[in-house]
Computed example of a mutant assay.
Amino acid sequence: MDNLPLLTAGVTLLAGVLAVLGVHTYASGRAQRQALVERMTQTGELTAGPGRRRFHALDRRLRATARGRRLERRIAATGLDITPGEYTLAVLAVVVAVYLVVGAVFAPFFGVVAALLALWGARGHLAWQRAKRTEAFINQLPELTRVLANATQAGLALRTALAMAAEELDDPAGSELAIVADQLAVGQSLDDALGALAERLPSRELMVLVTTLILANRAGGQVVSSLRNLTQSLEERKETRREVTTMLSQIKVTAVAVPLLGLGFLLMINSMAPGALDRMTGSVVGQAATLIAFGLYGLGAFLIHRISRIQV
């Protein structure tokens, strides 16, 4: 009993040491987990941290199917901060809202047609976001080639130059190159990593850059001079693409304005003769004529888009 104060102090000291070790272990594990989540988010394996997301059960069910995995890859290619479950529920909510609003304003038949168009538009929205991200990446290619040329001229290896470019460039080039750098860090070959980048963001300019880097990595040669020449070519193509886009802007507006005029005429007819659209779509002939009219409007917009599509 005489050693009770000394024993108490020893136990207290031991408990304090164990508490410090426990806090250190917890903080280290939490930091490693956060780093893993960020790396998986960049590679597309995980679209967000679990604490910020909902609908985990729906996400698991979707990822268990081939269609859900394809949807997840399409979303990852767009750079959107959304999970497949959130996207699916958002699309369903928009489809139902469009059906109710259009059906109330025009006629129930138009609500069904608008819901189908909204479902098709949701898929087209992903394609548009991917094209938008690809276009932004193409605009960064001259800066990217300039950074790679400077890094290789300074004596850095191509893998190191790609990692440095990932840190210096803004999104989307920075995040996409960070994915390439992570893939190279885990042992993937340069050909496969750059090939995956070209598949995520398909474009002729990026394919030229990827081919140049792969050939230079395989056979060696003057990488710096090749990148310098490619930088100048990409700058000229960038200016040409901007001029072409400006010249074709009026045609693209026409492709959108013509279908909107048709909808405006329908609203005018329904306001002048209330119930006219209900009577028009109340028969099979009227429904067929409406579908043919919508098809002609869509065909016209498609033809205008194809005519104004110029490959630079």
Rank of each mutant, 00 (worst) to 15 (best):
P5A: 13
L184A: 00
T83Q: 02
V284I: 14
D59L: 01
D278I: 07
D81A: 11
V112D: 01
Q232T: 15
R218Q: 03
I292D: 09
L158P: 05
F137M: 09
M164H: 04
R67G: 10
H125V: 12
L299H: 09
L14K: 06
T134Y: 10
L190K: 00
Y99H: 07
G282T: 00
F302H: 02
E38D: 10
G195P: 03
E72K: 10
G10F: 05
E176A: 00
L14R: 06
A114S: 08
T281K: 10
W128A: 15
S189T: 11
A178T: 11
T41F: 04
Q183G: 00
V96S: 09
P172Y: 15
V208L: 13
P202S: 13
L177P: 04
V186K: 08
A149G: 11
Y297W: 09
L277N: 01
P259M: 01
A196P: 09
T25V: 15
Q140R: 04
A35N: 11
L148R: 03
A151W: 01
V285A: 14
E38Y: 05
L267N: 04
Q232L: 13
Q32I: 07
A173N: 04
I179F: 07
L7G: 07
I251E: 14
V258S: 07
L296Q: 15
R63V: 06
L169T: 03
P50K: 06
V94R: 13
A293L: 11
L303M: 12
R69Y: 00
A122S: 11
Q188R: 10
R73I: 14
L230Y: 01
W120I: 12
G300K: 07
A151S: 15
V96P: 02
Q183L: 07
A289G: 04
E86T: 09
E86R: 07
W128N: 12
L13R: 00
T88A: 14
A219R: 14
I251H: 14
G298V: 07
V223E: 03
G124N: 02
D182I: 05
G68N: 03
A165S: 03
S271V: 13
V147N: 01
V208S: 12
V256P: 05
L194W: 04
R39Q: 03
R306V: 04
D170R: 14
E135W: 09
R133Y: 04
A76E: 08
R200F: 05
A198T: 00
L266S: 04
R63S: 10
L263M: 15
G262P: 11
D191C: 06
A161R: 01
A166Y: 09
I251F: 13
R146V: 05
R60C: 05
Q129R: 12
A107L: 02
A255L: 05
G187I: 03
L277V: 03
W120M: 13
F109M: 01
V17H: 12
A136R: 15
A64D: 00
T41R: 12
R159T: 04
T43R: 07
A273T: 14
A122P: 03
G68Q: 06
M280F: 15
V312N: 14
Q34V: 03
P84F: 00
L303Y: 06
L62W: 01
V258M: 10
E243S: 13
G68M: 01
G300L: 06
A193W: 00
E38C: 15
L184V: 01
I75H: 02
V91N: 11
A216Y: 00
I179E: 10
Y87C: 02
